[in-house]
Amino acid sequence: MSETAAAPAASLRARAEIDLVALRANVRALRALAPGAQLMAVVKSEAYGHGAVACARAAVEAGAGWLGTATPEEALALRAAGLRGRLMCWLWTPGGPWREAVEADIDVSVSDMWALEEVTAAARAAGLVARVQLKGDTGLGRNGCQPGADWAELVGAAVEAERAGLVRVTGLWSHFACADEPGHPSVDAQLALFREMLAYAEQRGVRPEVRHIANSPATLTRPDTHFDLVRTGIALYGISPSPEVGTPADFGLRPVMTLAANIALVKHVPGGHGVSYGHKYVTPGETTLGLVPVGYADGIPRHASGTGPVLVGGKWRTVAGRVAMDQFVVDLGGDEPEAGAEAILFGPGDRGEPTAEDWAQAAGTIAYEIVTRIGTRVPRVYVNEEQSG
């Protein structure tokens, strides 16, 4: 990921400004919502597009006791960058870097017998005890061990491996399917099954350090799901898991990323002038067009063609015509900002600019995707890197 700490905004084609003060404040707000649990800062996928290393450091500074990634490669990269403390990763495939993870003191998730066999082999080869967290599928239907006979087999084998000194079962966990839909009956059903799976494992001698099932929406709205640890992903970056759950401000959160670009060209065109590929937009009359030098190669969703909002000169504009690979156009309605003027695609909304949620609505997707897809051609410019106080 391209990172820039000091380059002036005027010299950059585009930039994603990452406010680390906002991120730290979000960590503190989330910890206050789950005072009886530790907090895991999930920094998978380059911290949802914000930059994993910088965000992980800021989150730990603000009191996150755990870091979480999807892939082992992401976790190992954090270790290589000097991040210490508790770190978990959960998306494994056969033949993965188990030994490297064991040697790097990373908690690894196990959902099936093949994974337990591979991690115990890695622990034996390394001469170390592997830290393992067993994941149960309580209803999401993705990763995780099925309840019943499969769970009994996995728990039994893990207990035997622990007795043999090869692993330490540090956690039992699961993941909600519909916690972002308040009142969805699956939440209570999953929670009840999770409690049953916990009880079974604990009756057979598992003594986990942490039990966890709460993701961002459950952390925000379901205190009864917090257990020993909450895993906060999108909320950490000041974005609501869904409008149904509430706005960021409802939970004391602030969006961390502001995406902006510098207008590359302003020009006068007559009425009836086609704009961008396919001429899906034709100017209704004489006007001015502004060229914004970012496109779908930078992560701007093509699905927002004709709908994506942009703040230019204090006014909301809309993407005119199709988003192209490297650029899109806005109709400025006769206004004439200078080349180099700022176009804000989204941010916290303080200056009247659109938010990531506005772009999600425009593109028919979720705000998670809007921030995560911003590509490597867009430098991350970190502000407020030094922690005050």
Score class of each variant (00 low, 15 high):
E153F: 03
E153P: 01
L154D: 10
L154S: 05
L154Y: 03
L154W: 05
L154Q: 09
L154N: 04
L154C: 08
L154P: 01
L154A: 06
V155S: 10
V155F: 04
V155R: 00
V155N: 03
V155Y: 04
V155I: 15
G156W: 11
G156N: 12
G156P: 04
A157I: 04
A158H: 02
A158V: 07
A158S: 13
V159A: 10
V159R: 12
V159G: 02
V159M: 05
V159N: 03
V159I: 08
E160Y: 07
E160A: 08
E160G: 08
E160V: 12
E160W: 05
E160P: 03
A161N: 04
A161P: 05
E162K: 07
E162M: 13
E162Q: 09
E162G: 12
R163A: 15
R163K: 13
R163Y: 06
A164M: 11
A164D: 11
A164V: 08
G165P: 05
G165N: 04
G165K: 03
G165F: 09
L166Y: 00
L166S: 03
L166A: 02
L166M: 06
L166R: 01
V167E: 00
V167L: 02
V167D: 00
V167G: 00
V167N: 02
R168D: 04
R168I: 01
R168S: 10
R168F: 03
R168V: 01
V169R: 00
V169G: 01
V169L: 03
V169D: 00
T170N: 05
T170Q: 06
T170P: 02
T170G: 07
G171Y: 02
G171R: 01
G171C: 04
L172H: 12
L172Y: 08
L172F: 14
L172V: 11
L172T: 04
L172A: 07
L172G: 13
W173I: 11
W173Q: 08
W173V: 09
W173E: 06
S174E: 07
S174D: 11
S174K: 10
S174R: 10
H175Q: 15
H175V: 15
H175R: 11
H175K: 11
H175E: 14
F176D: 06
F176V: 07
F176S: 05
A177V: 15
A177Y: 10
A177I: 12
A177Q: 12
C178D: 13
A179N: 01
A179W: 00
A179P: 00
D180P: 03
D180S: 11
E181A: 14
E181V: 07
P182I: 14
G183C: 07
G183T: 12
G183E: 09
G183W: 12
G183H: 06
H184G: 01
H184E: 02
